[in-house]
Design a protein around this nucleic acid. Structure first.
Lengths: 108, 108
DNA sequence: ATAATAATTCAATAAGTATTGAAATATGAA
DNA sequence: TTCATATTTCAATACTTATTGAATTATTAT
């Protein structure tokens, strides 16, 4: 499979679950500083092991990064993967429908 | 769950599979006229029942529409769901990173 | 060193998704 | 009507993903 497509599918699959979408939105709102795993668990009421499972999934998909800070592990949204995904969808799945593509079409 | 979020998750899940992403991209390229199920199966080398399974999935998610034409059933991409998905992701998962949002931020 | 807190790993189970081949339905042609 | 083509339904199986509770590892504080 083409590399770019695999990246896109991994990101799509990672976001296609309520818990993970909630996590990602929370981390987007938290910004670059991110949030401790425990705080995410508290905010979304998810059990520890389940949270780890979903965060690992998202990290594998490149949607979040993590770093340790004392006994906490801080997770942060990785925006570049998100914008790459949107770019992929616009280029491959829209064909002149989105504003950006429509603009291109206009000037062609 | 919020309605808009459910719609987004369904669309994400529907696109998060190689076969379905391939189908969708094929239908996007085919345009509004769409393609007969058999032609999709031929182009992507998918067995009939499996194709039906994936197309049903996508129709349920609102990504494709279908109509019968003689003995063929024609499937077409539904662009509005796709653009709605991109809009959702930009609004909820990007926070001022995409060009559009950056523009808004600029003028704010 | 001991205890307390934070997070992860592990193993078991439950739940959901994908694929296949055979059978059924729908339409059009001879 | 009978036959051929197109698609779907069905049932079985295989595969993947999600959830839970118990045990483990990592870090800090006493």
């Amino acid at each position: 499979m083409k590399y770019e497509k695999k990246i896109a599918i991994d990101a799509l699959g990672s976001l296609a679950h309520e818990v993970r979408l909630d996590i990602f939105r929370l981390l987007v709102r938290a910004g670059p500083d991110g949030m401790a795993a425990g705080d995410i668990a508290g905010a979304l009421k998810i059990a520890g092991p389940n949270l780890t499972f979903h965060l690992s999934h998202m990290r594998q998909a490149g949607l979040v990064s993590s770093r340790r800070a004392g006994r906490n592990v801080i997770y942060a949204a990785d925006f570049s993967r998100m914008t790459a995904l949107i770019g992929y969808l616009q280029e491959n799945c829209c064909e002149g429908i989105t504003p950006a593509a429509a603009k291109q079409k206009e000037s062609a």
